[in-house]
Amino acid sequence: MEERARKKEIIKKMMRNPRGRGEQHQQHVELIPGLPDDVAVDCLARVPHASHRALRCVCRGWRHAAAAPCFASARSAAGAMEDLVFMLQFGNPSADDGPKDDDAPNNTPAYGVAVYNVTTGEWHRENRGAPQPVPVFAQCAAVGSRVAVLGGWDPRTFEPVSDVHVLDASTGSWRRGASMRSARSFFACAEAGGKIYVAGGHDKHKNALKTAEAYDPVADAWDPLPDMSEERDECDGMATVAGDRFLAVSGYRTARQGGFERDAEWFDPASREWRRLERVRAPPSAAHVVVKGKVWCIEGEAMMEWMGMRKGWREVGPYPPGLKAGTARAVCVGGGDKVVVTGALDGEGGGGRHALWVFDVKTKNWTVVKPPPEFAGFVFSVASLRI
């Protein structure tokens, strides 16, 4: 009964006047002639995400329904949610990626947004409305249905930028976001508590940074944070515990180029203070990911979980088969049910191509996904969302 009442409320919200131009009454919109409202909503909710752009073009009612915030609830109730992995990826030199930007330097590889649908196995590029060109070494992070592309290098000047571009994955539309307060690259970046945190990295003079800030994609505003205790260039970023705390792992100071530290700092939003964690970092080439509040890393010969400073690391699963060491990026999907890892194929047979590995947290099994050649380039940053 409770589920039925919730479904009726979803339908009621979706049936409201799509014009929304100040009318004092609400006009019923028949989504599919001859079908009850609940059946029509079920039909629309089950349309694959790849077809949502076409769905919104059918009529005003369908466009309004697909854009309504409650449409995600309808898809969830119908069991039609899909897990998408967004990758900021260099083009694969062995593949024909099509025409290149004439203004870009010849030695600059193509860099763009690739999307892998974990649920359906489909691949595509987010080209329509995306920033052109995408800053090289830009990072990405996701909040709700939004994916933000932040910072990186201008591919023409190779200087860091403060640019922010935001994709609403539910509508496929891009917008220019408020710029970061500091231009930076190679910084820690992750979503935590509904905000996107950035910390560390380096400026245009290659000086390591300890500054940090947090972005609210709904308000399109940045919040300057207190400085970390240390400079942290090339540090990892992730959310921890309940998902409301941001963790900046390792990195190195300006004076110690490439000398990665084994500590970390996490930001407490309640006290607005940074707190240090000693000896957290696995080897510098490890890829870190948070799975149901626990910090995992992919390194050496296994998947490992951080048990705290006293207990250190413990093995929780096998190493991705055929993954070249030191090339991994990782992201959690499906609410913690799976971990997706990107990286280079090991051995001479890899040919410089990259692939994906999907880890089932329950069965501890890996599935290797070899993408089409045009999606087999190096992935610098990765984010995921469920839609």
Rank of each mutant, 00 (worst) to 15 (best):
K7F: 15
R16I: 06
G20K: 14
L35M: 09
A40H: 08
C43W: 05
P48E: 09
S51P: 00
L55D: 01
R60P: 04
G61C: 10
P69R: 09
S76T: 12
G79Q: 09
M81G: 06
M81H: 03
N92W: 04
P99M: 02
K100T: 10
N107L: 10
V113S: 01
V115Y: 02
N127S: 08
F137P: 01
A138V: 08
C140G: 11
A148R: 02
D154A: 11
L167W: 03
W174T: 03
A188E: 01
A190V: 01
E191M: 06
L209D: 02
T211N: 08
Y215N: 00
D220R: 08
A221V: 15
D227E: 14
M228A: 08
M238L: 12
T240H: 00
F246P: 02
L247I: 08
R256Q: 14
G258R: 12
F260D: 05
E261Y: 06
E265P: 05
D268N: 15
S271E: 12
S271H: 12
E273L: 15
W274K: 04
R275F: 13
V291W: 00
V291L: 13
K294R: 14
E301L: 09
M304C: 10
G308W: 04
E315V: 15
P318D: 14
P321E: 06
L323Q: 08
A328H: 03
V331K: 00
G335D: 13
T342A: 15
L345E: 11
D346R: 14
G349S: 11
G351W: 03
T363F: 09
K364A: 13
N365I: 00
T367P: 02
K370C: 09
P371Q: 07
P373F: 05
E374L: 09
F380W: 11
S381N: 12
